[in-house]
């Protein structure tokens, strides 16, 4: 099994699926000759040609809207939006068109597209290059939203996304892109969209997160006394999300902290916390806590680590939930 970082895993998975399915086309700004600004599509144009790996004009609405058309016409488009902040111009095409076509045509027209989007902060990037908008897209019926945090999860989820008959937003946490390598199987495998992963089993408190903060949560766990047993859940899929996994865990531990980079208000933690309240009420030993970004504009990089949920803030919330 080859060792890969997140960038390499996504790159080889795209190649794998393009080899297997000639309907798959990659399109976006700088994805061809340049191999993408993060090099995620490096070498794909040389291997599969400029007809299947397309440098588009600089227009996010154009990329998303024409991908909707490609999908309608039987292709499997995998557009890239260069940074999550640039989803803005593509929002209408994604939300009002891609997401609604199946419903409004009563199943006659479907949109199997997978839009790849680098997401999140922590890499000293400029403005509008560090946001975490996953809850916005999870809120729109008709869209699936995933955010893998490891190279092997990225492979399984990306294959599932491209083969999914409906539109999927595939968020790639930039902070993880090159942060570590792991063995990624050569085999063809998918990870079901909507299934979480228990990263570590525990008895005292459940911590739910996704994307780059998985690693901040692991660091927070190192700051806790050894006899504190944390169950860490990497949600992986934001919509649909693994309610059963989270509910079962919280019924066992009676305590829960949700961690995400996005602002607290209307972040996906609100949905998780509310569902726990609905389904685990008599099991709860403490109020569910959210460690999240503040309800402010993501600051420029001088203050970005103060904004983001770093390990000390997570560890503190875990200690307080345990002491409640």
């Amino acid at each position: 099994m080859p060792e890969m970082n997140l960038v390499q895993a996504i790159n080889s998975t795209l190649a794998h699926e393009m080899e297997r399915d000639e309907r798959v086309v990659v399109l976006g700004e700088d994805v061809g000759l340049n191999g993408g600004v993060f090099r995620v599509t490096e070498g794909l144009q040389a291997r599969f040609g400029a007809e299947r790996v397309v440098d588009t004009p600089l227009a996010e609405s154009g990329i998303m809207g024409s991908a909707v058309g490609l999908a309608m016409a039987g292709m499997r488009p995998v557009p890239e939006i260069q940074f999550e902040g640039f989803l803005g111009p593509a929002y209408d095409q994604l939300v009002n068109h891609a997401a609604r076509y199946r419903t409004r045509s009563r199943g006659a027209i479907t949109i199997p597209l997978t839009v790849r989007v680098p997401v999140g902060g922590g890499i000293h990037a400029p403005e509008l290059h560090s946001d975490s908008p996953e809850a916005i897209y999870a809120h729109h019926p008709g869209l699936k939203v995933v955010m893998p945090s490891t190279p092997s999860d990225a492979k399984g989820l990306l294959l599932a996304a491209i083969r999914d008959p409906d539109p999927v937003v595939f968020f790639e946490p930039k902070r993880v892109y090159r942060s570590f390598k792991e063995d990624v199987s050569d085999e063809d495998y998918t990870i079901e969209i909507g299934k979480a992963k228990v990263v570590s089993e525990g008895e005292h408190v459940t911590v739910v997160t996704w994307g780059a903060p998985v690693f901040q949560c692991l660091a927070a766990m190192d700051e806790l006394p050894e006899d504190v047993s944390v169950e860490l859940i990497d949600l992986r899929s934001i919509y649909p999300w693994d309610i059963d996994c989270v509910v079962e865990s919280v019924r066992k531990t009676g305590r829960c902290v949700v961690v995400h980079e996005a602002p607290k208000t209307c972040g996906f933690g609100a949905e998780i916390s509310s569902t726990i309240q609905e389904q685990c009420f008599l099991h709860l030993q403490a109020p569910v806590q959210r460690v999240a970004g503040f309800d402010t504009v993501m600051p420029y990089y001088k203050l970005e680590l103060e904004y983001m949920p770093e390990a000390p803030r997570i560890a503190e919330a875990i200690r307080q939930v345990l002491a409640y």
């Binding site: 806590q289 803030r313 503190e316 409640y324």
Partner: peptide, 24 residues
């Protein structure tokens, strides 16, 4: 408070005042 967690914003809610649990 530089916190989003309600217990972090209001430690009394956690019954932590005077407790031995150390809050970072």
């Amino acid at each position: 408070t530089m916190r989003t967690s309600s217990l972090g914003q209001n430690p009394e809610q956690a019954g932590l005042t005077g407790s031995s649990v150390e809050v970072a």
